[in-house]
Computed example of a mutant assay.
Amino acid sequence: MNATKPVYLVDDDAAVRDALGLLLLSHGYTVRAFDSGEAFLAAIDARSEGVAVLDVRMTGLSGLDVFDRLRADDSELIVLFLSGHGDIPMAVQAVKQGAFDFLEKPCGDQQLLDKIDDALAIAQARSQSRGGQQAVQSRLATLSPREREVMQLVLAGKLNKQVADELNIAIRTVEVHRANVFAKMGVRSALDLAQLLAGR
């Protein structure tokens, strides 16, 4: 997989960081490695995208501490935990709280690559969904106040004559506003418009 979004490796064990980092690089991933949860959190923000591979047990902030911070910031990162045998109950709990999954150390190369591919696919889908939502918001911003009024009444299922009566304007004017709304929003019908806004 040619990953467009980075994989963040967060592990205080240099040997693990190097081994996983080289594995991912050799398969074409973009990799950023950190030796502590603190260093990782300082390098990212809530808008950062990709996959974070967090060791459960680390000096300083644990992987679970880092995950809690990410959740508190509404981070878009997909979190995958690496856990030693004794950490599995904690990792399972983290998955229940929204982490993507966990792998028990030591894990096979292909198992890790498959999990990261799955997580990156989710990150990509989320990003595309947000892009679509932003595009809808941008289109809505081009509507005039009157066009917005007409749009709301059309979405409420009102006919042109009813819209004209409610807004005290001519039916022809309603038709013009309605056509403008459909053109600006890139739709052909009231149903298309409703579906577009429902996915916003």
Rank of each mutant, 00 (worst) to 15 (best):
E147A: 09
A19G: 08
S36V: 10
S36F: 02
M58N: 07
Q93L: 07
K105L: 03
Q111G: 13
S48Y: 08
L24D: 05
S62R: 10
A164S: 13
N160A: 13
P6N: 12
I122V: 15
L22N: 14
D55C: 07
Y8H: 10
L112N: 08
L143W: 01
D65M: 07
L61G: 08
L120A: 04
K105R: 12
G37E: 06
T4E: 13
D74G: 08
P89M: 03
A39Y: 04
F67G: 03
K158G: 04
V53K: 00
G60S: 08
H177T: 09
E76R: 15
F40D: 04
D73I: 10
N160R: 12
Q195N: 14
G28F: 04
G186C: 06
C107T: 14
G108H: 12
V95R: 09
S62L: 02
A170R: 12
A156P: 09
I169W: 02
M151R: 05
L70G: 06
E38N: 07
I169M: 10
A123K: 11
F81N: 11
E76H: 15
I88C: 06
F81R: 12
F102D: 06
F81H: 10
D55I: 05
A170W: 03
L23A: 04
E76C: 08
G157W: 06
L113P: 06
D13G: 07
S127H: 14
Y29I: 00
S26Y: 02
A94P: 07
A91W: 04
G186L: 03
M58S: 05
S129R: 14
A123C: 07
T142A: 13
S127N: 14
R146D: 10
V176R: 15
V181G: 01
V150K: 03
Q124H: 14
